[in-house]
Amino acid sequence: MNLDYAELDPGRVLDALDTVGLRGDGRLLQLNSYENRVFLVHLEDGAAVVAKFYRPARWSNEQLLEEHRFALDLQADEVPLAAPLPLQACGASLLGEPPTLAQWQGLRFCAAPRQGGRAPELEDLEVLEVLGRFIARIHRVGRQREFTHRPRWAGRSPGDLAVEAVRASGCLPYELEGRWHGMVERCLQAVQQAFGAQPGLRTQRLHGDCHPGNLLWTPGGGAHFVDLDDAVTGPAVQDLWMLLSGDPAQAQQQLRALLAGYEQVLDFDRRELTLIEPLRTLRMIHHSGWIAKRWDDPAFPIAFPWFGTPNYWLDQVAKLAEQLEAMQDAPPAPPPKDDDDFVNFDGDGFA
């Protein structure tokens, strides 16, 4: 019997964990996650794990195992991250070496140790410097091998996939199709041009979704990531730019602090700074495609009630027009790191 994803109630969660040797004591709490079903589960032995049930058809088994392999590589290098636990075959089918991915009644899941923490204080430049070192440690491990099956964020292709999802969803009003598609195409051409203007840039395994909501901070213990669910291949700056905020002057300070920490561990190619706005543009387009692709999930219309309205798409067209201008006005590749003015952006770079 295959369970429907929507039928994953507490009893079935505990049944699933039993099949991999993790016996719950009956206490569990569903955690916030739009993409997967995630539960904090207390075990009979006194430990607690976070069980993640993957959304069907989002990732292939090969892609999930690459995510797990990256997490285990990081764990082996003592980088703080809740890596998936090796599982026991007590009724479920297991995949991976060690076995970390379980298949049971049509669902796929893994379990990781519980790790607590709070959001990092990104206004503190010392915290940002620590985060820079932390991300560099992840990237140092990321360079040791390559993804074969995970997505690439090194050109326009993520945006093209998002456009296909929007088109298939029927969420874009007919009268706005031309305006949105036309603006997106202009933006994606600019994205591709930006990547093409920097030949020879290194791409590597990345966290891929490095925003403050995916980071936890423990006083005295530093930072760790929640998981690697959106791990991709791409340029290193993809894991840095989402930590920048505020006005341009504040963002410059934050970037300096991040890179000061990063370069204590690993080299950084400053040509990648010209990709911040293209990557931001890709993320905006990708976000619309993500919601469109999930619109049949009852949770999404509740969480994003404005999606699909004319005002939403008009707002997206306006924001993408601003991004197009930002990409066209982007500065040339910055000079080497010994030049103190290497992040002298003109104000559009970190809107």
Rank of each mutant, 00 (worst) to 15 (best):
151 P>I: 01
125 L>E: 09
125 L>H: 03
135 I>C: 04
168 A>I: 04
150 R>N: 02
156 R>D: 13
154 A>E: 11
143 R>H: 05
149 H>D: 07
147 F>G: 00
136 A>D: 14
140 R>N: 06
152 R>I: 11
161 L>D: 11
156 R>V: 04
139 H>R: 09
167 R>L: 15
139 H>S: 01
126 E>L: 14
155 G>S: 00
164 E>W: 04
156 R>L: 12
150 R>T: 13
143 R>E: 09
137 R>D: 12
125 L>T: 10
145 R>M: 09
139 H>D: 07
130 V>P: 01
125 L>N: 01
135 I>Y: 01
165 A>D: 13
160 D>Q: 14
142 G>T: 11
128 L>K: 11
159 G>L: 00
167 R>F: 06
156 R>F: 06
136 A>L: 04
137 R>C: 08
164 E>D: 12
155 G>Y: 01
145 R>A: 15
133 R>E: 15
141 V>A: 07
142 G>V: 00
140 R>F: 03
154 A>V: 02
159 G>T: 04
147 F>I: 00
127 V>D: 05
167 R>I: 03
149 H>K: 11
130 V>E: 14
156 R>T: 13
127 V>I: 12
161 L>G: 10
168 A>E: 12
133 R>T: 13
138 I>C: 12
146 E>C: 07
142 G>I: 08
142 G>N: 09
162 A>S: 05
168 A>N: 10
158 P>G: 02
153 W>R: 14
135 I>A: 05
159 G>D: 01
167 R>S: 09
147 F>M: 14
139 H>Y: 02
136 A>S: 08
128 L>I: 11
135 I>H: 04
146 E>R: 14
168 A>Q: 14
151 P>M: 08
129 E>G: 12
147 F>D: 06
128 L>V: 10
129 E>Y: 05
159 G>K: 01
158 P>H: 03
128 L>M: 13
157 S>F: 06
127 V>C: 10
